[in-house]
Design a protein around this nucleic acid. Structure first.
Length: 921
RNA sequence: GCCCAGGUGGUGGAAUUGGUAGACACGAGGGACUUAAAAUCCCUUGGCCGCAAGGCUGUGCGAGUUCGAUUCUCGCCCUGGGCACCA
């Protein structure tokens, strides 16, 4: 017998598959399945291990689906526009087209080496005119449909790449690609109105099978917050003086908490806000304000981060009016309010917002509580609120008393109710809270001399049933903290004694004994200091709205002041103009009057001119193209000028999956029939780094086309899974600079493609990071050697359906293996499927005779992972045609049962014994 | 600070619904074969105690629910990734 020699058999099969197209034939009438990979950028470094992993995973699904009778589209292509090729051209003068095509050819060789079964006859290259003409065509449809607009906007500008980049492409205030610090620059450009689709992009997530965390991340990225827009009028500083000069200047704010409007005690606007320019004359400290604004602008984002303390300056000479209270409140400029989010102005509610609170403390501004935490006794408690009883309001005071001598605190023990509380008492109308608290401590516990430590600001509300009085109580309580001055004590009346008992306990004990939220709330403040209450509760100090739940109050208060319930998003429009050469030209020309016009379908592809210099000037390279200008004037007339920016490469990758079914079509981007046949994509695999940009843009693209009536589906990818990163042995990210990059080619020549594929999948779950350890490849290589040995050394008997003459146990294991491998592929749990096949092969090695039909089926189970060896052994076993035209085996339910069943004896959850019992009894 | 993911032997990982923790593999140790080595095959391999039978302990830490928790609940610690005052 020959030894297992992957080099020999793998190249043989790769050649056969490439040459003999009929050998692995397609059957068009079968049910269709679209298995898509994220296509690579063809870099000079070649395919890396991350590609190897995800392409192997998709290849397994592709082959598995084929074997299950599907007609599978499993295409591949190149996202071939982009900066590296252009930067290389700047350095060496080699045209990006040349580099790109060369790199792509290398990728194809590597993909073949791995035995990947992608359709390499129908590839897509985004930089080729036969592709980008359709990118331009679709752009034009969006343009005509009003989904693209030209805006002059402040954009992120990378001085190194000499290009504007989208907000999403900025990392840590640095350029995602080259790491240069981003500058802000005013520049005209084209934008896709992705924000118009914000709600659809959120809602669509509910109907697709994507990892939950990916969906969550997209929701967060879109960042919808619901709230209200409310107008505050702005008046000159002293109302009395300026009655007649009351210019109708106003400030609109967006707030998620309109329910707290009565607590808005000041306003803050962003340094960029228009109001400052509009009211320059009225601002009496304009100079200082301007200075602050300048400082804020000069600050880099990094500096802002370092300096956590809030800064700001009061605008003198202007006041705003809180529309709810009609009170005058001051206006500040501060850089903690952002120009680009919401309206660039906020109403500050220091009592219920942590940032406003911090600012208010620093500038000594009033803090007004308008929401009280509220708890209602739970249903299964003895004091649950009873609907049939009337509710009586009461004001209460809690006293938290501490003895400084031993640090114990004083609680009341209520034997009747089996609970503990602070000292509690009612407060009479107009009575001083502290006096009331002292009185209650004296009455209930007898302690006479108390030192006031603290009055807590917060008021809390509770509703419960006072069982003994047969009425519901709505209690509004505040809390006072005392220390004993001495232990002098009077006698407590028998009446009080009967109700409750005074008890000194340590803080640890108190923590355990206090169970009602209204007490633990103050206990937390006592232990950890006062915190801003940002939760839900009931409205107080807000006129007619008192007592309302915050949710209810939001709309009512908004309506009361003439505001509008609305939502804002964190998502910004997609800036897609790039001042670069190597991208799809934007098919727009400008009339002598400067009006933008689409070049027209008949002029597509609107070719990227060849007569350009790559040296970056800060302007678009196309501006220097004579040919482009001449072309424009020739077609449209003198004075017409071309758009010289090119498109963001994310545009090209937002629709490539629509081209794959029909790559050779010269009339349409994809025929209607093929769109119907293949789309949307059934399964998409790619890295988690594309969670925000690519995946969001592609979803937007499809929704936009759907809105324009071009397609009848509105989500591109029905099922999505990510692959993890491939790390080195130490768990460090592979990178050229660290010199720890592993080349897939080397792995293939050392261990073969089958072993490389198998190890990638065996190392762990697909979505987890893989630590690449060559020691580990040995294991799967041995497994392949053993498989080889089984099929070459052990006698195979063609034993028919009842299979006499072989070990029955191996038949049972065979059926179990089919089930396990099938279930695991469905669950994308490749590592455990491989382990099941290892167990099977290990058992086979112990046999003298094996059933030939079952063993052929076993090869089918293994074939998606290791296509070469299984194709080879398939022929040896007398299989007809390619193994990939075979049928996925089925298991026999009856064969899954064990003859003997293990019974586990547990006592108190601990294993005490195991028994083996005949399964038939 | 906030959001997401995760924490299981020396290592990668398994345990799919709360029911024998550590499948499978790597590494390590011992043995067989060999002049020798590699390869291959066999045995052992979470820790502690024990000659053994066996016992105790064990899934980041601490509580809780349960007859029973790697799995569920609460609190905390750590690691990785993402976001930066989002009103």
């Amino acid at each position: 017998m020959d030894k297992y020699n992957p080099n020999k058999i793998e190249s043989k099969w790769q050649e056969k598959w490439a040459r003999d197209k009929e050998y692995v034939r397609k059957e068009n009438e079968r049910e269709k399945y679209y298995m898509l990979d994220m296509f690579p950028y063809p870099s000079g470094d070649g395919l890396h291990m991350g590609h190897t992993e995800s392409y192997t995973a998709s290849d397994i699904i592709y082959r598995y689906k084929r074997l299950n009778g599907f007609n599978v589209l499993h295409p591949q292509g190149f996202d071939s526009f982009g900066l590296p090729a252009e930067n290389y051209a700047i350095k060496t003068g080699v045209h990006p087209k040349v580099t790109t095509e060369k790199n792509a050819a290398n990728y194809i060789v590597q993909m073949k080496m791995l035995g990947l079964g992608h359709d390499l006859e129908n590839m897509v290259y985004t930089s080729r005119p036969d592709y980008y003409r359709w990118t331009q065509f679709l752009f034009a449809k969006f343009f005509e449909g009003g989904l693209v607009e030209r805006k002059t906007d402040t954009i992120n500008w990378c001085p190194s790449c000499n290009t504007g980049i989208a907000n999403e492409q900025v990392e840590d205030s640095k350029c995602e690609r080259c790491g240069t610090e981003i500058e802000q620059k005013e520049i005209p450009g084209w934008f896709f109105k992705i924000t118009d689709f914000a709600d659809e992009l959120i809602e669509g997530l509910d109907k697709i099978d994507w990892p939950e965390h990916t969906k969550k991340n997209q929701r967060n990225w879109i960042g919808k917050s619901e709230g209200a827009k409310i107008k505050f009028s702005v008046i000159p500083g002293k109302r009395s003086e300026g009655k007649e000069s009351r210019e109708e200047e106003s400030l609109e704010v967006f707030t998620t908490r309109p329910d707290t409007l009565f607590g808005a005690t000041y306003m803050v606007i962003a340094p960029e806000h228009q109001l400052i320019a509009n009211t320059k004359q009225q601002i009496t400290n304009y100079k200082e304000v301007e200075e602050y604004i300048q400082k804020a602008k000069n600050k880099t984002e990094m500096e802002r981060q370092e300096n956590k303390e809030k800064t700001g300056i009061k605008i003198e000479g202007l006041k705003a009016i809180n529309p709810a209270t009609n009170e005058e409140i001051p206006i500040f400029v501060a850089d903690y309010v952002l120009g680009g989010y919401g309206t660039g102005a906020i109403m500050a509610v220091p009592a219920h917002d942590a940032r406003d609170y911090e600012f208010a403390i620093k500038f000594n501004l009033p803090i007004k509580q308008v929401v009280a935490p509220f708890w209602q006794a739970e249903n299964d408690w003895y004091d649950a609120v009873r609907e049939d009883l009337e509710t009586v309001e009461r004001r209460l005071v809690y006293a938290l008393v501490k003895n400084p001598k031993d640090n114990k605190v004083l609680l009341l023990k209520w034997p009747g109710y089996n609970t503990h509380t602070f000292i509690v008492g009612g407060v009479e109308e107009g009575e001083d809270l502290v006096e009331a608290a002292r009185r209650e401590v004296l009455e209930e516990t007898g302690y006479k001399n108390l030192k006031l430590i603290k009055e807590y600001n917060d008021e809390v509300h509770v509703k419960y049933c006072a069982v003994h009085k047969n009425q519901n109580r709505y209690a509004m309580a505040k809390c006072i903290q005392f220390e004993l001055e001495d232990e002098e004590r009077t006698k407590v009346s028998d009446d009080e004694k009967a109700k409750h008992e005074a008890l000194w306990v340590t803080e640890e004990e108190a923590e355990k004994l206090l169970e009602y939220k209204n007490f633990t709330y103050f206990w937390q403040m006592y232990k950890k200091g006062e915190e801003v209450f940002v939760g839900n509760g009931n409205i107080i100090n807000s006129g007619d709205f008192n007592g309302l739940d915050v949710t209810e109050a939001k709309e009512k208060i908004t309506k009361f002041v003439g505001g509008e319930m609305t939502a804002t998003y964190r998502l910004r429009d997609w800036s897609m103009s790039r001042q670069r050469y190597w991208g799809a030209p934007i098919p727009i020309v400008y009339s002598p009057e400067g009006e933008a016009k689409y070049v027209g379908d008949e002029n597509l592809p609107w070719l990227l001119p060849e007569d350009v210099d790559f040296v970056p000037t800060g302007e678009s390279p196309l501006k220097l193209s004579k040919e482009l200008l001449e072309r424009t004037e020739k077609i449209f007339g003198k004075g017409w000028t071309p758009e010289v920016d090119t498109m963001d490469t994310f545009v090209c990758s937002s629709w490539y999956f629509l081209r794959y079914p029909d790559t050779k079509n010269e009339q349409e981007y994809c025929s209607e029939e093929k769109l119907k046949d293949w789309l949307p994509v059934d399964f998409y695999i790619g890295g988690p780094e594309h969670t925000y940009m690519h995946l969001l843009y592609a979803r937007f693209w499809v929704k936009a086309m759907h809105r324009l009536g071009m397609i009848d589906f509105d989500e591109p990818f029905m099922k999505l899974r990510h692959q993890g990163m491939v790390l080195d042995k130490q768990g460090v990210k592979m990178s050229k600079s660290k010199g720890n990059v592993v080349n897939p080619n080397d792995m293939v020549s050392q261990f073969g493609a089958d072993a490389t594929r198998l190890y990638m999948m065996f190392a762990g779950p697909l979505e987890d990071d893989v630590m690449w350890n060559e020691e580990g490849v040995k294991g799967v290589y041995r497994f392949l050697e053993k498989t080889w040995k089984v099929f070459n050394e052990i006698e195979m008997i063609d034993c028919g359906p009842d299979c006499r003459g072989v070990d029955e146990a191996i038949l049972g294991l065979y059926h179990k293996t089919i089930k396990k491998v099938t279930d695991d592929i469905e669950n994308i749990s490749f590592n455990t499927a491989i382990s099941a096949m290892m167990i099977f092969v290990n058992e086979c090695l112990k046999q003298e005779k094996l059933p030939a039909p079952a063993m052929k089926n076993f090869l089918i189970l293994l074939s998606p992972y290791a296509p070469h060896i299984t194709e080879e052994l398939w022929v040896k076993m007398g299989g007809k045609g390619s193994i990939f035209n075979a049928k996925w085996p089925k298991y026999d339910e009856a064969m899954l049962k064990d003859e003997l069943i293990k019974i586990v004896v547990q006592v108190n959850g601990k294993l005490r014994d195991t028994l083996e019992v005949d399964a038939d009894i």
